[in-house]
Design a binder for these strands. Structure first.
Lengths: 143, 143
DNA sequence: GTCGGTGCAAACCTTTTGCAATCTA
DNA sequence: TAGATTGCAAAAGGTTTGCACCGAC
C-alpha cells in the first residue's frame, strides 16, 4: 500500500523485480547486483532505502540467517518457513508448519508470530562428497 | 574442551561468567559491559575473540534475533528455543519443541538442525498499556 | 514547478585483524 | 622462557544519513 505521496521509479521497480525474480530470499548485495542490470548506476543506498520502505509497507519480508546479512523475499505468500544449506549457503522456502507454538509460551507471554529455520544440506549439496561449495555456511548455531 | 595450548585467563573467565550469570542470551556489548566490572580495562576485541573461541569449542551458542547482533548463551542445556519480546527486546528461553521438522523438508534435503524463534510480548510487557520500553524491538519479520 | 527520490560520499556500528606488550603455564 | 593472550588502533564489512541534483506527477 504505497502512501499517496510515494512515487514509482525505475529503481524501485527494478528492486522489487529482482526480489520477485529470484525465487528465494536474497541479501541486499545480491538485490543490488541484480537490479543494477536493469537500472545502470543504481546506488546501494537506494537499495537499502527501498528495502526498508517495502518492508515497512509489508511488500517484502526479511529472513534472518545466523552469521549473514538479512535476506529478503516477497511477502504475502502462504505461511512457510526456511531452510539454510550449510554447504552452499542458499536459503529455500519449505512448506508446512507444526504450529502449536502458543502452548510452549511461558505463563503470561503473548505470542503473535514465529519463525522456523531448518539447517542442513540441500538436495544439490547432499549429493556431493564432503565439502560443498565455498560460498558460505559459517556455523554459528548448534545443530 | 580447551585445547592443550589454551590458557585460562581472568578475561576468559569473566566473559564466561557474564554469560552464565545473565540467565538469558545477551549480545557482545552487554557481555563486555558485565565482564568489565570484574576485569578492568577488558577490551572489546578480547570479548569477540573469546566468544568465537567458546562458540567453536561448543561452550556457548549464538542466538540470532532479526535486526540485532547475535546473543550468546551457555550451550549444553536441554533442547529449547527462544522468545523475543517486541516491546523490551529481551530474549527468553522457552521449553518444548514440536519436532517433526524432517517431514517438512523438500525431497532430497538433509536436515541436521533447527531453530525456532517466537515473537510477542513477555509477561512484563503484556501488562503494560500499548508501548513497552524504548529498548528495541524493530520489527523486521512478519508476524 | 514541487517535492519526493536518487547517487555519492561520509558517518555509523559491529566485528575482525595487526602488532607490541603482557601474562600463563 | 616460550608462546599464547591482551589492549589498542586501524581495517573491514554492512547499513544509514546528509546533501545537492534529478525526475515523477
Amino acid at each position: 500500500m504505497p502512501s499517496p505521496t510515494e512515487r514509482n521509479t525505475r529503481q524501485r521497480l527494478a528492486i522489487r523485480e529482482a526480489i520477485a525474480a529470484s525465487g528465494m530470499p536474497i541479501p541486499p548485495r545480491e538485490i543490488h547486483r541484480q537490479a543494477r542490470s536493469n537500472v545502470e548506476g543504481l546506488g546501494l543506498a537506494t537499495v537499502y532505502r527501498t528495502l526498508k520502505l517495502l518492508a515497512d509497507a509489508g511488500v517484502i519480508t526479511a529472513v534472518e540467517i545466523p552469521g549473514q546479512p538479512p535476506h529478503y523475499e516477497l511477502a504475502g505468500k502462504h505461511h512457510h518457513h526456511h531452510f539454510h544449506c550449510r554447504a552452499c549457503g542458499r536459503v529455500f522456502e519449505v512448506e508446512g508448519c507444526c504450529g502449536h507454538f502458543e502452548e510452549h509460551a511461558p505463563r503470561g507471554f503473548q505470542i503473535d508470530g514465529h519463525e522456523v529455520l531448518l539447517f542442513g544440506r540441500c538436495a544439490d549439496c547432499a549429493k556431493l562428497p564432503e565439502r560443498g561449495r565455498t560460498t558460505a555456511a559459517k556455523r554459528t548455531t548448534r545443530p
